[in-house]
Amino acid sequence: MSVVALTAVEVDYDRGRALGPLDLAVGAGETVAIVGPSGCGKSTALRLLAGLEAPTRGQVVRAAGRGETAVVFQAPTLAPWLSARANVALPLELAGVRRDEACARADEALGRVGLAGAEAARPVQLSGGMAMRVSLARALVTAPRLLLLDEPFAALDEITRRTLADDVLALWAATRPAIVFVTHNVEEAVYMASRVVVLTRGPGRIAADVEVEGPLPRPPGFRTGAAFRATVETVSAALAEGSTG
């Protein structure tokens, strides 16, 4: 049973075909990484999955309703005039949840991403990594069935990236939403996903669909294991082939 499925979707912009034709189904609780060269339509695919954009041709079937989908953008995308708590409570308040209850659930979500104590801080007072965690808490606060991440760690340093990757997997283990995330980092894709979808250069089509062996969340030392290295090689090869061919 898939949470969301794209069937033969194509997206055309003024300057021509941006994506597709593409078939992609995401199962409940699955973590899928989409990798591909710049301009292949990764982010467009993500917006289709989110329902923020409609395909020019083809079909999008979503089992996850509007309120059950959450997106984390490349930048934290926080409202600077709101505290961390108010930013996280925003999706709930837009859905009509009472303010005190929304705030209580926001505080709980901030606690889950390791930001207990920072509830009253404004975005300008947070580091890049902390702001991204607030953004993550805002996505998780509605307990989504589908969580979409658009290169969420691209602007962060390597250590923060790795910590956040583990944190996202730990959070995933708690409620098991389906996760789809876009990245241009192959190791990150293989580390975080049970399945890596490789797109060709634009307009993106599927070049490879690679299963990743191993438990999620990842055990310590997973990055140095032979299986991990082999999968990274497979994905990289598919990516290289899709980029030139």
Partner: peptide, 10 residues
């Protein structure tokens, strides 16, 4: 992106 977020949450 904030506008998209508002759209996402209807």
């Amino acid at each position: 992106d904030l506008v998209r977020l508002f759209d996402l949450y209807d």
